[in-house]
């Protein structure tokens, strides 16, 4: 099972992304977090309950306190990191950010805000998670 998490401090962004996830049938009801630390806690908690779960995480970079990079570093130390599929979502993509993301095995893709219909299609095609969207 693939659970979708939205990590962003901007509530409007979260609203838009939830709608898009829903409308494009990526997730019925994605869970959102305004703080990265909360998202991390949730993942650890969920992981304890079910070892079988995969996570698709839409991650904003610029956030107060724990930012996107800090969050990624924490994920990197997890045993189950192969089950985390992070999409970096940022208001403007920086070449340096893309370089930096190469250090993290969990990052699958970059999306520039706002998230578009074609972005959603591309998410479904990511090889590590595409099997979750195949028609039954």
């Amino acid at each position: 099972m693939l659970e979708v998490l939205i990590v962003d401090d901007d509530q409007i962004v979260v609203f838009i992304q939830k709608k898009m996830m829903n409308n494009h049938e990526i997730a019925q009801n994605p869970i959102s977090f305004g703080k990265a630390a909360d998202a991390l806690d949730y993942i650890i908690q969920e992981q304890k309950l079910s070892q079988q779960k995969d996570f698709l995480i839409l991650l904003d970079i610029n956030m107060p306190n724990m930012n996107g990079w800090d969050f990624l570093k924490c994920l990197e130390s997890h045993e189950q990191k192969s089950k985390y599929h992070v999409i970096m979502v940022t208001s403007s993509i920086d070449r340096k950010d893309k370089e930096k993301a190469k250090n993290f095995s969990t990052v699958r893709s970059f999306i520039e805000k706002p998230i578009s219909a074609s972005d959603c299609d591309k998410i479904k095609e990511i090889s590590e998670i595409s099997h979750f969207f195949e028609p039954v």
Partner: peptide, 13 residues
């Protein structure tokens, strides 16, 4: 880009 992205996202919706 942050507010602009929001505006674009909302209009898209």
């Amino acid at each position: 880009r942050a507010p602009l992205a929001r505006i674009m996202g909302l209009i898209d919706l």
